[in-house]
Design a protein around this nucleic acid. Structure first.
Lengths: 141, 141
DNA sequence: CTATCTGCAAAGGTTTTGCGGGCTG
DNA sequence: CAGCCCGCAAAACCTTTGCAGATAG
């Protein structure tokens, strides 16, 4: 799965307009930052200032519905996007910088499964976010 | 901590207006449902129809800042409140009914701590939400 | 050529806030 | 009686959408 976002869009048969190509290109380089729409819009308009924010909203929604992007909502209340081409993972948010670190902890997943089953349920999806500060940066406690 | 919400407010020195007493009373009976503001407003206006939704918003915010309430944001995008007088716990949301089940899994917490430490961070807070369906469709509480 | 897409601006849903009058302590 | 609080309505914030013109395939 090393295809570019553009290739995946074409593979899904999405009509590739100039605007969507620009947005796909920006996502290609920015998706590791989990950008929100405002951040995407800023980069997109550097490339083509005529693209509207409505188109960015419509495009990320389309890509999410096509299974190409994943929408995250962290504690800041805005939607943040990443590509859907990796294994399931959870997120650690660095409170000092806002940086998002992905992690995967199969043991935690297994414990969740076990617990939920015991409660008589079947997991559809879950989200785990850890908000943390670096150990060696200035501490407030 | 079996104090009533009203008592906790008084203990914090909050000015107890008629509106705040009504809201505290509603929370007293409803906090296990993790109600959102709209739900609180509906019950509050049954008791006193002149109370405005702005006051409900202001009051839950005040109670949160006072450490009496905890604000949760589940996948529906609205803020939902519970009392802050219990142990830390996470949430399972029953997708078929919207019911919220609290659970506590010390093993998961321990694994989180270990992992975050390994990444060079210190946890400030975290949230874990599991969205699930009942295995067996007749479950009433 | 036509169904789909775009930009614009208006509207949607949730939450906050400025104002002038009202109430608590 | 001073200062905080209330109701109202407007605004803030993020996101969606109706419309009429533009464009991909």
């Amino acid at each position: 799965m090393t295809d570019t976002i553009l290739k995946k869009c074409e593979a899904k048969g999405l009509r590739m307009t100039g605007q969507r190509r620009v947005i796909a290109g920006v996502l290609e380089t920015a998706h590791r930052d989990h950008p929100d729409v405002e951040a995407l819009y800023a980069k997109v308009t550097e490339i083509d200032p005529r693209i509207s924010i409505a188109t960015v909203y419509r495009t990320v929604k389309l890509l999410e519905e096509s299974g190409i992007l994943i929408r995250n909502e962290f504690a800041d209340g805005r939607a943040r996007y990443e590509t859907a081409d990796r294994e399931h993972h959870d997120h650690l948010i660095d409170l000092s910088t806002g940086k998002v670190i992905e992690f995967c902890e199969p043991e935690i997943e297994a414990l969740q499964e076990k617990l939920v089953k015991k409660l008589g349920y079947k997991i559809r999806f879950h989200r785990l976010e850890i908000y943390a500060d670096p150990i060696d940066s200035n501490k407030t406690d």
